[in-house]
């Protein structure tokens, strides 16, 4: 029959159209809210999604996975006295691995000795060159530069970010990437403990060096 194929195809669209309503009714019967809830968004992004697929940004947002990356930011620790401890040591690795070379760092020098100080004086990222590749965060040995989740940064002018704009607290970092933060924190603690243990061992070795010497002396 001519037209059978078209009808078959229309059947698919009809089913899809119909599912929108059956799905809505099913959610109502289950007593759950399908829209503007995290559960609803999650369901609409899963394999079981049927019917309406739209996530109505800005009222509801997609759930960003932890690894999601947008533009980079610099992490600082909030000190008890309110001062900011910038983790960046201005080692320059991020500037070296940046594929479009959009990171600019001015290294600090000690005003007295002229020797480099592990802190940047200035730090720029040209956001209109940055390609969001994540290399800077991946290769930073100090966990000082990380990729942000914030994407609502459209503006009326060109975007060149300086230190002021780039610095975000480690609390914020912890909130967007809890698993990564926990892993890095554990590594830091382990490293500190290893260092401590090493120092303790060295001290113990220095301590025990004398007795062994004495023992050796008594043995002979």
């Amino acid at each position: 029959m001519y037209g059978k194929g078209i009808l078959k195809g229309l059947g698919v669209t009809w089913k899809r159209f119909w599912e929108t309503y059956t799905e809505d009714i099913a959610w109502v019967l289950r007593g759950k809210k399908r829209y503007f809830t995290e559960e609803g968004v999650k369901h609409r992004s899963s394999k079981d999604q049927k019917g309406i697929f739209t996530v109505q940004y800005p009222e509801e947002k997609l759930i960003q996975p932890e690894e999601a990356r947008y533009l980079p930011f610099l992490v600082y620790n909030e000190m008890p006295d309110g001062k900011r401890e910038v983790l960046c040591t201005s080692c320059g690795i991020c500037a070296k691995v940046c594929p479009p070379q959009c990171i600019w760092i001015v290294r600090s020098n000690d005003p007295v000795t002229g020797r480099p100080v592990p802190e940047p004086t200035e730090f720029y990222i040209d956001a209109d060159i940055c390609m969001n590749c994540g290399f800077c965060a991946e290769y930073c040995p100090f966990d000082a530069i990380k990729m942000d989740h914030d994407f609502e940064i459209a503006s009326y002018g060109r975007n060149v970010f300086n230190m002021e704009k780039l610095l975000k607290s480690s609390e914020y970092y912890k909130s967007i990437r809890p698993v990564n933060y926990a892993r890095e924190e554990a590594a830091r603690i382990a490293e500190a403990e290893a260092k401590k243990a090493k120092e303790a061992a060295r001290a113990a070795a220095a301590q025990s060096a004398k007795p062994t010497g004495a023992e050796a002396a008594t043995a002979t």
Binding site: Y70, F151, E152, G157
Partner: peptide
């Protein structure tokens, strides 16, 4: 240019924000 949207590429949500 009226609005600049950074990102490479901006996700659809970022575009809508712009």
């Amino acid at each position: 240019v009226d609005v600049y949207i950074p990102g490479c590429p901006p996700t659809p949500q970022a575009l809508i924000a712009g």
